[in-house]
Computed example of a mutant assay.
Amino acid sequence: MSKIVRFHATGGPEVLTLDDVEVREPGPGEIRIRTRALGVNRADEVFRNNHLVELPSGIGWEASGEVDAIGPGVEGFTVGDAVSMIPTPINTPINYPIHGELAIAPATEVVKHPDTLSWEQAAALWGQYLTAYGALIETADLKAGDTVLIPAASSSVGLAAIQVARSVGARPVALTRSSAKRRRLLDEGAEAVVVTGEEDVVTRVNELTDGHGARVIFDPVGGPALADLIGAAAPGGTVIVYGALSSEATTLPVWGLIGKSLTIRGYKVFELTTDVERRKAAVDWVLDGLARETLRPVIDTVFPLEDIVGAHRRLESGSQVGKIVVTVPR
Rank of each mutant, 00 (worst) to 15 (best):
T17N: 01
D20V: 00
V21I: 14
E22H: 11
E25V: 04
E25W: 00
P26A: 03
I31K: 06
I31C: 07
R32A: 12
R32S: 11
R34Q: 14
R34I: 05
T35R: 08
R36S: 04
A37E: 06
L38R: 03
L38Y: 05
L38I: 14
A43M: 10
D44P: 07
V46P: 00
F47A: 05
F47G: 02
L52T: 11
L52A: 08
V53W: 02
E54I: 05
P56I: 01
P56F: 00
S57A: 15
G60E: 10
G60M: 09
W61I: 06
W61L: 13
A63E: 09
S64F: 03
P72L: 03
P72C: 01
G73D: 11
G73F: 04
G73T: 06
F77L: 10
M85N: 07
M85E: 11
M85R: 11
I86W: 07
T88G: 06
P89M: 01
N91C: 10
N91D: 09
P93D: 07
N95L: 08
Y96E: 10
H99V: 02
L102Q: 02
L102I: 04
I104C: 04
T108Y: 03
T108V: 10
E109C: 13
V110F: 09
V111M: 14
H113R: 14
P114V: 05
D115I: 02
T116K: 08
L117W: 07
L117I: 06
S118W: 02
E120D: 07
Q121E: 15
A122Q: 10
L130C: 10
L130R: 13
T131R: 13
A132F: 10
A132P: 05
A135T: 10
L136K: 09
I137L: 13
T139R: 15
D141Q: 14
L142T: 08
A144E: 15
A144D: 14
G145S: 12
G145V: 11
I150K: 02
A152K: 03
A153I: 01
S154K: 01
S156V: 06
